[in-house]
Design a protein around this nucleic acid. Structure first.
Ligand code: MN
Ligand code: MN
Ligand code: MN
Ligand code: MN
Lengths: 220, 220
DNA sequence: ACAAATATTTAGATTTGTCTAAATTTATAT
DNA sequence: ATATAAATTTAGACAAATCTAAATATTTGT
């Protein structure tokens, strides 16, 4: 697989291999920032390699083989993102471009050793799941802290209320997007929540809990 | 710069930009495992980018700009080699192929952070020097322990006497090729040498010292 | 000095991935 | 139901990197 083929496979996967309808040529062209005619050429090539099922004018979908290939590339991408953030100290929102290159490095041994070195992480710095070598993974969902049960653990990925005051509050309390957050306790009385972030425990009000999104792995 | 252009620049550098004679087309073809006609095409392209000085039939040499580019790629290659060995636990003789790919990743920030993370190493796992960001480095030479002065530090890179007995001795004493070795003391009387390897001190006979090669940085 | 050997370049193809412009198919709207 | 619009494919071109075969330049041996 060439670098370009790999990026197409990944794009098709992200455009929703989950869905039952095939992916359109134009959708892929938009995602890849290329022209539809280029996409058509590539789809023929990928079809010849049994990576996609392709019917002229009818769109495309990944084969079993194509999907496993996509998951293997996504695994590499996300493991490298963990490396960049956890080991090299990149910010969570700076890593994508570099991981986009690193994901194409060819070496099974490398990725095995990297996985071990990182402590077999289950999620990347954006809270997205890291597929296993066999292509298995739990889906992740983005939910407000207030909607999540006790014990949930996830990555802070966004705010509902993006007022200056709220962002300032988060900053003051040492909570940044990209941080991993765990829900320790929930108070029925006032909806306040005990959380752990950056090895610190703190209590946040219902107002805060209803405005901060976590990316968490779905149970089972 | 494309991946291929970078590999050519590096090949020309290694074929001896140090020398005063220009490098021949055929020499590059051998090094790159490609055909001389392909080399000619690439030399024209690199010449157009001011990376090399090229005269038809007269060979090629790197420009100042080309040499700095070569050193930057070599810096990346060797830093990644250190990462693979020190952090991921690759053996020193397994890293070249992967580093050959990793050296082409484009990100100044990445290589700066990697350098810091690795503790600004001066040499790679083969004892070869790692150029600074500015392209400065000390040359390295391969010498027998017996030829080196007190205080020398280098990487074990080879043996003079490759008899089974000698290799067995090294193995028994926990010395492997790729290990860093420091000369602590030299006994004039019998030529025996005190060394430190893998955080252990030991004394080796003149016979051993005269048969084990170290790759060391030249002083000044 | 000149023929033979060697090294290098040129000419013409090929593969990969891209593009534009034109043709064709599919969807939409009256 | 049919004309328009939108989506998709085809045709033909191009740049990058490679190759083979042929042409040309340089070196070497006598
Ligand atoms: Mn990519
Ligand atoms: Mn990610
Ligand atoms: Mn390389
Ligand atoms: Mn090396």
């Amino acid at each position: 697989m060439t670098l370009s083929e790999e990026d197409y496979i990944k794009a098709i996967y992200h455009l929703g291999s989950g869905k039952e309808q095939p992916i359109s040529t134009n959708a892929i062209a938009v995602q890849m920032e290329t022209k539809p005619s280029s996409v058509t050429d590539m789809l023929k090539k990928l079809s010849g390699k049994n990576m996609v099922k392709y019917k002229k004018y009818k769109g495309v979908s990944l084969t079993e083989h194509g999907e496993l290939t996509a998951l293997s590339i996504i695994r590499k991408h996300r493991l490298w993102e963990v490396f960049l953030v956890d080991k090299l100290g990149f910010a969570w929102d700076e890593v994508h471009e570099v991981a986009e290159q690193l994901e194409h490095i060819k070496s099974d041994k490398l990725i095995d050793k990297l996985d071990t070195y990182l402590g077999n992480p289950r999620v990347d710095p954006h809270g997205d799941p890291i597929p296993s070598k066999e292509g298995e993974f739990k889906k992740s969902v983005k939910k407000l802290i207030s909607e999540l049960p006790l014990g949930s653990e996830g990555v802070c990925v966004g705010v509902n209320d993006s007022s200056a005051a709220f962002l300032k509050f988060l900053d003051k309390n040492g909570i940044s997007l990209g941080d991993t957050l765990k829900i320790l306790e929930k108070e029925d009385f006032d909806g306040s929540v005990s959380i752990e972030v950056n090895n610190k425990e703190m209590r946040i009000s219902d107002q805060i809990a209803s405005n901060l999104f976590l990316e968490v792995l779905e149970k089972n």
